[in-house]
Amino acid sequence: MKKDIILAGVGGQGILSIAAVIGMAAIDSDLYVKQAEVHGMSQRGGAVQSHLRISDRPIYSDLIPAGSCDMILSVEPMESLRYIPFLDKEGWLITNSKPFRNIDNYPDEQELFDEIRGMSNSLLIDADRIASEVGSRKVSNIVMLGASAGSLGLTMDSLESSINGIFGRKGEEIIRMNIDALHAGKREAEAQLIS
């Protein structure tokens, strides 16, 4: 079993929480994990990414080799496309559809969506709407995690207990909301895949 995932977004959007949940679930499932994060300069509103690698065999490189990434999981539509050179031909691109506009030359939304839908394996998820429905836009990153859950090779139980572990200190209410977000994201992805 091997999953190479690129998490994408803009500094401050919470991709590291997604990485933490997946990482902990993987470790608890006795898998090897490597996760390269971006700290520093680009966290100031710039493009950020994290290379997350899970495997049942030891992992050497902290970086995913170009062209062999199994999934790009993005919390922002334009950012999802930035890492296409890393994606395997069979790989999946799963992204939140809600643009984060902090630059003047942000592209036309329709053009972006066309590009994403034009890929062989992609899912566009309205994570902000789904997150609001379960309680708060803040959990849209966990909605995206849920949308990817079907192809992570990890069980929902392990993801749930990882959410429990990571958000434990923040209280029942927050945990509940994150777990709801996880399931809502998964349902949305499944609905899209069936239709």
């Binding site: 100031r44 710039g46 493009a47 080799p65 170009a66 496309l81 790989g91």
Partner: peptide, 21 residues
């Protein structure tokens, strides 16, 4: 051989770090 997948689509704009709002 270079293993890279497709290139970055043209619609993608640079998003450099910036001073916070």
């Amino acid at each position: 051989a270079d293993s890279s997948g497709n290139g970055i689509p043209e619609v993608v704009a640079n998003r450099p770090p910036a001073l916070c709002k």
